[in-house]
């Protein structure tokens, strides 16, 4: 499915069941004779007109109708051809120096998840992963940086980058195997983080530092 189509369905689905949302969009596309891959201003207008009809039909409260239409208008205005991101690309950078920053980072991650409408289960996974990554920075590198940002592709999700200029990991294979036993934790931090996340990339060079990039997608 096209990115923009998915976004429209996502917005609609906040106000109606996903199946209804899907069919509202399908019908609107058909009635407006619009191809979502090539949206000019006219096409956008026509599509929105049809979707509005669907919204008025399926969304009961007038306030909700307005909210839904307003959000859709915004999406369509910024999302022609799916080139512009729809949810704001926000990134928070936290410099991690001490143990208090670990808590700060994971709370920030949780807040970002909440904003995106993550389930409690996903929120806990993301904040746990941040906790592991931030702790590694404090324990092994001393200082570093955690960047939490919202990504749109390949799906809406949260990306966490943990970067440091610490000693690096010289036995990466062992650490990632889940059978490594560190003094501080269970040797399961990175291994566990990989299991919790959808994407996991690590680059580490002894003497230079470590960068871990993980992602958890909304669905």
């Amino acid at each position: 499915m096209e990115q923009l189509e998915q976004e429209i369905v996502d917005v609609l689905a906040e106000f109606m069941t996903p199946i209804t949302a899907r069919s509202v969009l399908d019908l609107s596309l058909r009635w407006s004779r619009v191809d979502v891959t090539s949206l000019g201003p006219d096409e956008r207008e026509r599509l929105l007109y049809e979707i509005k009809k669907g919204v008025r039909l399926y969304v009961a409260a007038a306030g909700d109708q307005d909210r839904c239409i307003k959000t859709l208008t915004k999406h369509l205005a910024s999302g022609g051809n799916g080139t512009a991101p729809v949810a704001p690309e926000r990134a928070t950078s936290i410099s991690v120096k001490s143990e208090a920053d670990i808590v700060l980072a994971r709370n920030e991650g949780r807040a970002t998840c909440e904003e995106l409408g993550y389930s409690m289960a996903l929120q806990i996974k993301v904040s746990t992963a941040i906790s592991e990554l931030a702790r590694n920075i404090v324990l092994y590198a001393g200082t570093g940086q955690i960047v939490i940002r919202v990504v749109q592709r390949p799906a809406v999700g949260v990306e966490i980058v943990a970067r440091d200029q610490g000693p690096g990991i010289n036995n990466l294979d062992a650490v990632m195997s889940g059978r490594y036993d560190s003094d501080t934790g269970m040797g399961m931090g990175l291994f566990g983080t990989r299991n919790l996340m959808d994407d996991f990339h690590i680059e580490s060079e002894p003497g230079k530092g470590t960068e871990v990039v993980v992602r958890k997608y909304l669905r």
Binding site: R106, R110, I124, S127, T128, S131, E132, R135, T184, G185, M186, M188, G189, G192
Partner: peptide, 10 residues
């Protein structure tokens, strides 16, 4: 508590 990581578990 709201979350538990490897350090807390340990």
């Amino acid at each position: 508590i709201d979350m538990m990581d490897s350090y807390i578990s340990k």
